[in-house]
Simulated assay, not measured.
Amino acid sequence: MTGDTPRIALPPRSVESRLIVVARAKRAEDYDAVLEVLVDAGIRSVELTLTTPGTFDHFPRLLAQFGEVADLGIGTVTSSADLGRAVDVGAHYLVTPITSTAFVQQATDAGVPIVPGGLTPTELFASWSAGASAVKIFPAGQVGPAYLKDLRGPFPDLVAMPSGGVDLAGASAWLAAGAVAVSVGGPLLGDAFSGGDLTALHDRAQAFVEVCAR
């Protein structure tokens, strides 16, 4: 990457908390109660996924309710049109599971942080050198924290976060390996979107918050 390549920093709250919760619901209306619990437990960054029907339409309401205390990003962005719409509804950051330098350029031009996914050194470096805010090691469960340590050899400045299969112990290990944050879904959310105990969700969220704050 050349010194004049623009790069937009990740939102400060996401970086300070070192934890992003990936929320996949059956429908967008299910976000409300879960986000209320997450925010109350200290979660300060939530990625709302486009695999949840109605995310775009419901996003402004969530932003109005939670946007002052937590970063709300839009994830599973897989098209230029969806990226543009995510920018238009006010996403604090964007996440895509794929490597696309075109997406990085589009998000950077719009002034919104973007975290593209990738697994191989070639994929991760392509996004990083194009100006990504950070890169998402995905699926992280297939490699493990030692992989990030290996990447630090050729890419010492790489800002990376793991996503996919990161549990409580894994969160601690990835952060110790140098991840800027961890992206966590199922191990934290559990059955919260299918009628699960929200008190238990609160406890799990607090446990992750405490581990990531160390």
Rank of each mutant, 00 (worst) to 15 (best):
A41Q: 14
I98P: 04
G170I: 00
P187H: 08
S80W: 02
T101G: 05
L19G: 09
A130E: 11
A102Y: 08
A33N: 13
Y147I: 14
G186E: 10
A181P: 13
A192T: 08
G165T: 11
Y147N: 11
G141C: 07
P156Y: 07
W174Y: 13
D167I: 01
A107D: 03
D4E: 14
A160S: 13
D88K: 09
D150V: 15
Y93H: 14
G196F: 07
T55Y: 00
T55C: 04
V184L: 13
L94A: 10
I8D: 06
V95H: 01
D88S: 15
P121C: 04
D57Q: 15
G118K: 12
F155R: 14
V135I: 11
P154M: 07
S133P: 07
G141W: 12
P187N: 07
I8Y: 03
P6E: 00
D82V: 00
V77D: 00
F193W: 09
V37T: 04
D4T: 13
D40L: 13
V87G: 07
F138I: 14
L189M: 11
G170S: 13
V182S: 01
L168C: 09
A171M: 08
S14P: 03
A126L: 07
M1N: 06
T99W: 02
V77Q: 05
S45F: 02
V69E: 15
L151E: 05
A91K: 12
A181C: 11
D157G: 10
T101D: 09
F125Y: 06
R85A: 14
A181E: 10
G3N: 13
L188T: 02
L201V: 08
A70N: 03
L158V: 05
V89L: 10
A169I: 10
I137N: 05
V77P: 03
A70P: 01
L188I: 02
R7T: 10
A169V: 10
V46M: 01
L198H: 09
P145F: 14
K149Y: 02
D203S: 15
D191M: 10
L10Q: 11
